[in-house]
Every structure is written in C-alpha cells, then in structure tokens.
Design a protein around this nucleic acid. Structure first.
Length: 117
DNA sequence: GCCCTGACTGCTA
DNA sequence: TTAGCAGCCAGGG
C-alpha cells in the first residue's frame, strides 16, 4: 500500500510542461478534497532532493499564484521555471487558470497510476 | 496513541 | 486584492 506521499508524487509527475495544478486539485484526485495542506507538505519534503523527477513547480495554490514560504526557493524562482515552460503570469503574479490549468486525470488513468505504485 | 506542524482552501469583511 | 479565521489530513517525535 503506497503512502499518501507516493500517490501525490505520482500524480504530480503526470502534469505536462506548460500546465499547472493546484494543491487542492491533486488532493481531490486522490480522494481527499480537504488534504491540500498535506499535499503541500509532501512537496515541501522534495525540497532537498534535487534529483527528484517530480515537477513541484507546476503545483500552485487555488488562486493561481505561487505561495512558497520556503527560504531556499523564492516565489520568483518558481514563477521563472514555469514561464520557461510557457506558463504566463500577469502583472499581479496570477496565472490564467483557464489557459494553463491542468485538466487532471481520468478515473482510468488514475487507477492505473496508483496500481503501478 | 497524542500533539504539533505545514509550500492549503473557502468564506467573510 | 488582501487579511483574518477555522477546518482538514498525514507524518514525525
């Protein structure tokens, strides 16, 4: 039985370049619409592991903007990484959820993904 | 098993 | 748009 963390990482790895998802969206996919905080914690744990293949920068909050309280990764850095992938931000630091928001996974894809863990 | 913590969320003002 | 508040879930000590 994979831990919640493993499931979070598996889902985040499915986010294609140029797209972004919210913490709540990832949590909802895993069946826990209220576990956004835990998802954020799971991604925070990746901070030290630079060799990880999890695109943590593609996960932002529901308001469409980055919200990092981390000393090692400034919000500007995450925004810069996303812009390099094609995601645009307006002057207020908000991204266009309608254009760059990730649609998520289908029930079938999700099931196969979690089964692979 | 209890308590604390955290890169969140939705609502109200 | 920003600020304050309470509810949520899982892992670590």
């Amino acid at each position: 039985m994979p831990s919640f963390f493993d499931q979070v990482y598996a889902v985040v790895r499915q986010i294609p370049p140029g797209k972004v998802a919210s913490y709540g969206q990832v949590a909802a996919l895993l069946g826990h619409p209220r576990a956004a905080r835990t998802v954020g914690w799971a991604l925070a744990a990746l901070r030290g592991e630079n060799d990880s293949d999890v695109p943590w920068q593609r996960v932002i909050n529901s308001q469409g903007r980055v919200s990092i309280r981390n000393m090692e990764h400034a919000p500007e850095e995450q925004q810069m990484l996303l812009e390099a992938e094609g995601v645009e931000f307006n002057l207020n630091g908000y991204t266009d959820w309608q254009r760059f928001g990730w649609a998520g996974l289908s029930a079938v894809e999700l099931e196969a993904l979690l089964a692979a863990l």
